[in-house]
Design a protein around this nucleic acid. Sequence first.
DNA 1: GTCTATAAGCCGATAGAC
DNA 2: GTCTATCGGCTTATAGAC
Lengths: 205, 205
Amino acid sequence: MAPEPERTQKSRERILDAAADAFMLHGFRETTIDDVAQSIGATKGLIYYHFRSKLDILLAVYERGMERAEEKVQPHAQDSASPAERLRAMSVAHLVNIMTFLGYHHVIHQAVREQNSAAVKPRQREALDRLNEQRSQFEALFRAVIEEGIAEGSFRDADPALMARTLLSSINAVDNWFRPRADQSAEEIEELAGQIVDLILHGIR
Amino acid sequence: MAPEPERTQKSRERILDAAADAFMLHGFRETTIDDVAQSIGATKGLIYYHFRSKLDILLAVYERGMERAEEKVQPHAQDSASPAERLRAMSVAHLVNIMTFLGYHHVIHQAVREQNSAAVKPRQREALDRLNEQRSQFEALFRAVIEEGIAEGSFRDADPALMARTLLSSINAVDNWFRPRADQSAEEIEELAGQIVDLILHGIR
DNA sequence: GTCTATAAGCCGATAGAC
DNA sequence: GTCTATCGGCTTATAGAC
């Protein structure tokens, strides 16, 4: 538990941020380690000091992204509001987080889609399995609130698992088309996220 | 316009089907031309007889996928039913098509996400632009019906462009998790597609 | 901690035989 | 039309200097 030197932590984070953006912009395989290094004004050597392989960087980005997602959504899952209000708050928090850390979430979706792509070593497979498990627990947060809402009679009586999955993948899909504009404030993003979430939660009627 | 020999056509189609599946399973860049060739019991030579480059295969898959999507959805856009009924019929037709030709649509979404990835030659850039244009006209089909529904008062009064985009990306996102089971009949897929579309169109209430 | 230099493997693409 | 053989370029990862 000895705290790492500050410079070490900072280099690590700069690499993660740069890698997330590069992986989003060009795809994992198309991004070279040299690209990532160059974009933070360093060379390959630095990267390989902090990470054992390119795939390990991807896994670290995945982990950091899930960490933030849970941090933002958890609190709303447990407060005292009604299921409908909680589900909306969770959805907006999740979407705002996606829109704010686009690169990280783009990487997560890439990773989920292309699990069998690269050569995954046993150690990495373990980490990947842990992350996928974390992801399905994240989905369970939403499913639980949906089940409450159904029991209570305020939600439609359909398969909660299908509802949770449809809801989450609809929200996640926003990262396919949303790109922040330079002049867009945090408030504007929150406002847009609210509109989109209402469309998803209430449909078109 | 001289019709090509039958064998030529058939090889071309087998390559497209195999490539779509391989690109879905392993990603575009991770798939080698040797993989595609081997999966149809042929060698690289055959592929390069029919296609000039790997990217050209991707573009051909994209093209074929859009062709089918339009074929299935167009008829429902123009019939005499109400906007709500037409929008549902279009959505179900689109989703069933995605679920049936998963590989093709997975490739389309990959291509859309990673436009700037590979080195795109001018001739290919032209083809890609044409396909993107075709894609936005496909979206316009949905937007037009939504606008009708709003004007008529049966849909919610929100931004039609945002509604169409949210609807389509929600439907498209299904290809991230849906995988057909061997024992799943066409009727069961249609039934599931209907459920999902209703969730997306009407929300959770 | 970070850099330079290089090894080692892989893959897209082509040439030419059949 | 399809196959075999091969080139050339690129990229991950490592070794070792500073």
